[in-house]
């Protein structure tokens, strides 16, 4: 009897936030999927997808988005992994300084970071004042600036995730492997990498999803064609009021993330059942 009461109470308490989730996330996603198959008279049509998948400009936007996302993700993972390993395995003064500072950028409003970034690196920015504008490579308003900005945004969080995974590896595992004469590279590939592999996947998921649909950074840094899909989607929605076309871009972004997100959720469920 008590168990039944508890069941009802439990569901009743979860309902407000679960319904908000349904109304604010699940339902809009369904509406936009439906909208993506409709023309202005609300009739069924494939036109939106035909446009998005064949229009030369849109195709270029896709390629560009994938390029930026792949380069950024690879760099973020490599740099963050190196940084996390450094913080985990070094006790020096330098690593203590970094471990106190590295998470601060996570709390800086994104748009402020971008503004600071532009002011720092533009042709007459702070760096140019030091090295002279004639020596300053012009990179802030193109793909190089965008990738660097993505690094700024994603390295702190990714490092935090990876550091917590590396900290969970007991020092004794590594010590004993070293005692039996294993080389550093062997230890890395046989112990450290496999033990942090799951977290690496989670980190990749977050980085991928954050970058592939990003808006503010590409909007302010690199707005000209080819555009990132996030910018192109916002323009179709806010500037051209093409609900169908912007919905179909959104759906395609959802599908891209669904593949990656599936790996993440599976991973989380697996870990939950272990604990």
């Amino acid at each position: 009897m008590i168990a039944k009461k508890q069941k009802l109470l439990g569901i009743a308490m979860v309902l407000p936030s679960f319904l908000s989730l349904i109304i604010l996330v699940v339902w809009p996603v369904f509406i936009s999927i439906k909208q993506s198959f409709q023309n202005e008279e609300n009739q069924f049509t494939w036109d939106n997808y035909k446009y998005v998948l064949t229009d030369p400009m849109m195709v270029n936007n896709f390629k560009y988005t994938m390029l930026v996302t792949l380069i950024s993700c690879v760099l973020v993972l490599i740099i963050s992994y190196a940084l996390a390993a450094y913080l985990r395995f070094s006790n020096s003064w330098f690593s203590k300084v970094i471990s106190r500072l590295y998470f601060i950028p996570m709390f800086i409003p994104g748009i402020i970071a971008i503004y600071g970034f532009i002011n720092m690196y533009r042709d007459n920015g702070w760096i140019a004042r030091f090295i002279g504008s004639e020596n300053m490579p012009s990179f802030v308003y193109d793909i190089k600036g965008l990738v660097l900005m993505n690094l700024w945004f994603n390295i702190p969080f990714t490092t935090m995730l990876l550091l917590s995974a590396l900290s969970a590896i007991p020092g004794s595992v590594i010590e004993s492997a070293r005692d039996v004469g294993a080389k550093k590279l062997t230890i890395f590939f046989k112990f450290i990498l496999p033990l942090s592999y799951n977290t690496l996947l989670v980190a990749l998921t977050f980085a991928f999803m954050g970058i592939v649909g990003s808006f503010t950074a590409p909007y302010l840094i690199d707005k000209n064609a080819p555009q990132m899909l996030g910018v192109s989607m916002q323009q179709h929605f806010s500037v051209y009021h093409e609900l169908g076309q912007s919905s179909s871009i959104a759906v395609i972004l959802f599908l891209m993330c669904a593949v990656v997100g599936f790996i993440y959720i599976k991973n989380m469920m697996k870990n939950e059942s272990h604990s």
Binding site: F237, I249, A250, Y264
Partner: peptide, 9 residues
């Protein structure tokens, strides 16, 4: 699980 701008649109 969704890109933010996609969800907002």
């Amino acid at each position: 699980a969704f890109p933010k701008m996609g969800l907002y649109v």
